[in-house]
Write a protein that binds this DNA or RNA. Structure first.
Length: 372
RNA sequence: GGAGGGUUAGCGAAGUGGUCAAACGCGGCAGACUGUAAAUCUGUUCCUUCGGGUUCCAUGGUUCAAAUCCAUGACCCUCCA
């Protein structure tokens, strides 16, 4: 089902925006956080648990589902929604991040990117057309143009030529894309360069996509650089189209980038950190594996409304994580996802009240201040 | 009663004269993690006032030097009576 974006309100003092994603008869407010479910599952959670966190869109991955179980099988199953039993909107990433995380520079050509199947060693070749074909077969609601996510540091020359190729790939994706029920978003690249980011954004807007994403961040850059990349990327994007910052999910980064005009975020960290025993809290990140929590029979966060905080204690979760019981990862994933979604809910309120700068100040004081 | 084998750090287990404060695994204690090659990875784990000190069942011995060789004892395991 094709999603639609409506801008509702702009915050008075910043570029922050309140909007909504319309999905059939359902509506989801933005800014929003999308939980990541790479392999057609948000790791350790059932779709019911994901929804209980008040999640809207979730993200799945073209590359992984291409390799396993294969897009034809998902299609045969009735599409991604039926396959994984999720009736909310689903976005598929194009495999562009895997160009960064899995492929070597020599594997990338104008035509596409060579991969080695990690499960059986087969040679694989992903192209813009192939990525779109897979995403159409998967039946996601939002497809992403195949891009190259460039790691940092990178030379200006490489960043420029890669970005130009990403633009050509975006055109090929648009030409290949046929499914009218599926939205297609394009990725702004251009590394740390103002000139390249702005150029890329303008060119993509000329091609006219359903939404735009800022890519090439969350690759290990310093925070101020990330914020600049977003500012450059967002500047020439149309107001009536949704803006998604790919891979970003550190709480402070969500606050800072909402202020800069981002509507959607995704990040693996709430679920990965959960599996590794960490929890986000208003007063910073805590490691539930630490011995000091063994006899702490209070919830992870006392005023959190998530299932884990309503029913379980730090001491119990410490026990589960130390015993490698998967329920520990489930509880912390629920908490961390709910934490980030709650953060976006608070940011939406701040936009409604035109006091997002005050919100940021309070957030930083709490999150990075003296630990309680 | 006889014949073998064994006892090493919190646990399991290497090491069989010097390069051994002693591999490795587990456990413990910490740390990292940003469009998921990640329920993974890294550090650390006898004591220390960082000079050093005290270890490899116990005691005695051989040797310049012993976890390693010898003697005796304790305990454990297997087999034979």
């Amino acid at each position: 089902m094709k999603v639609e974006y409506k801008l509702q309100k702009k915050e008075k003092n910043t570029n922050a925006r309140l909007g909504k994603i319309i999905y059939g008869d359902k509506e989801f407010e933005t800014p929003m956080f999308m939980p990541v479910g790479t392999q057609a599952t948000v790791k350790t959670l059932s779709p019911e648990q994901v929804k209980e966190c008040n999640a809207g869109i979730i993200l799945a991955n073209t590359y992984h589902l291409w390799l396993r179980p294969g897009e034809d099988i998902v299609k045969k199953a009735g599409g991604l929604h039926k396959f994984m039993n999720y009736d909310g909107p689903i976005l598929t990433d194009s495999g562009g991040f895997q160009v960064f995380s899995l492929a070597k520079p020599k594997d990338i050509s104008e035509e596409g990117v060579k991969f080695k199947n990690q499960y059986n060693g087969d040679s694989l070749f992903l192209t813009p057309e192939k990525s779109i074909d897979i995403q159409e077969k998967l039946g996601s609601d939002i497809a992403i143009c195949f891009d190259e996510c460039v790691g940092l540091p990178a030379t200006y020359e490489y960043t420029k030529s890669s970005m130009e190729r990403t633009l050509r790939w975006a055109k090929r994706c648009k030409d290949a894309h046929k499914d009218e029920n599926q939205a297609l978003f394009a990725v702004v690249q251009g590394g740390e360069s103002k000139e390249l980011r702005e150029y890329c954004a303008k060119k993509l807007v000329e091609m006219d996509f359903d939404g735009y994403t800022i890519g090439g961040t969350s690759v290990g850059e310093e925070k101020p650089i990330q914020y600049k990349m977003v500012e450059y990327g967002v500047k020439y994007l149309p107001e009536d189209k949704v803006r998604y910052l790919m891979g970003v999910g550190d709480p402070i980064d969500i606050v800072e980038n909402v202020i800069r005009g981002i509507d959607i975020f995704d990040c693996v960290s709430p679920t990965r950190l959960a599996r590794h025993g960490h929890a986000y809290t208003r007063y910073g990140k805590i490691n539930l594996k630490n011995a000091k929590f063994k006899e702490d029979f209070t919830p992870v966060e006392k005023d959190c409304d998530c299932y884990a905080c309503k029913h379980y204690t730090k001491g119990y979760i410490n026990h589960l994580i130390k015993s490698e019981e998967s329920f520990g990862a489930t509880l912390l994933s629920i908490h961390n996802i709910r934490y980030l979604i709650r953060l976006t809910e608070e940011l939406r309120d701040a936009i409604k009240n035109d006091n997002i700068l005050e919100y940021r100040e309070r957030f930083i004081k709490d999150y990075y201040g003296e630990k309680k």
